[in-house]
Simulated assay, not measured.
Amino acid sequence: MEFCDDCGSMMKTEDGTWVCGSCGYEKSRNEETEEGMVTTTGQQESEIVDISDAEDQGRPTTTQECPKCDNDKAYWYMQQIRAADESETRFFVCTECEHKWREDDH
Rank of each mutant, 00 (worst) to 15 (best):
M1Q: 09
E2K: 15
C4N: 03
C4D: 06
C4F: 01
C4Q: 03
C4I: 06
D6S: 12
C7D: 08
M10Y: 07
M10S: 14
M10P: 08
M10G: 15
M10W: 07
M10N: 11
M11F: 01
M11I: 05
M11H: 00
T13S: 15
T13Y: 08
E14T: 08
E14F: 07
D15M: 07
G16I: 00
G16E: 03
G16Y: 02
T17E: 15
W18R: 01
V19Q: 06
V19P: 01
C20H: 01
C20W: 02
G21R: 04
S22G: 05
S22H: 13
G24Q: 04
G24I: 04
G24L: 05
Y25Q: 06
E26G: 04
E26Y: 00
E26A: 09
E26C: 10
E26S: 12
E26T: 15
S28Q: 12
R29N: 03
R29D: 00
N30A: 05
E34M: 09
E35W: 06
G36R: 05
M37R: 11
V38P: 02
V38E: 09
V38M: 09
T39K: 07
T39L: 07
T39P: 06
T40Y: 12
T40I: 13
T40G: 13
G42M: 00
Q44D: 13
Q44L: 12
S46A: 14
E47T: 10
E47K: 14
I48Q: 11
I48N: 07
V49S: 06
D50S: 02
D50F: 05
I51D: 10
I51R: 10
S52D: 11
S52H: 03
D53Q: 12
A54H: 09
E55N: 11
D56I: 06
Q57W: 11
Q57V: 12
Q57R: 14
Q57H: 10
G58A: 01
R59A: 09
P60R: 05
P60Q: 08
P60D: 12
T62M: 06
T63M: 09
T63K: 15
Q64N: 08
E65F: 07
C66Y: 02
P67V: 02
P67Y: 04
K68H: 10
D70F: 11
N71G: 06
D72V: 08
D72S: 09
Y75H: 15
Y75N: 06
W76K: 08
Y77M: 09
Y77W: 11
M78I: 06
M78E: 12
Q79F: 07
Q80R: 06
I81N: 05
R82A: 13
R82G: 14
R82T: 13
A83Y: 10
A83G: 11
A84W: 09
A84Q: 13
A84T: 14
D85S: 12
E88V: 06
T89F: 03
R90T: 15
R90A: 08
F91T: 07
V93W: 00
C94R: 01
C94V: 00
C94N: 05
T95F: 04
T95M: 07
T95Q: 12
E96K: 12
C97M: 08
E98V: 08
H99K: 02
K100V: 11
K100H: 11
K100I: 10
R102T: 04
R102K: 15
E103I: 03
E103V: 05
E103P: 01
D104T: 13
D104W: 11
D105M: 03
D105W: 02
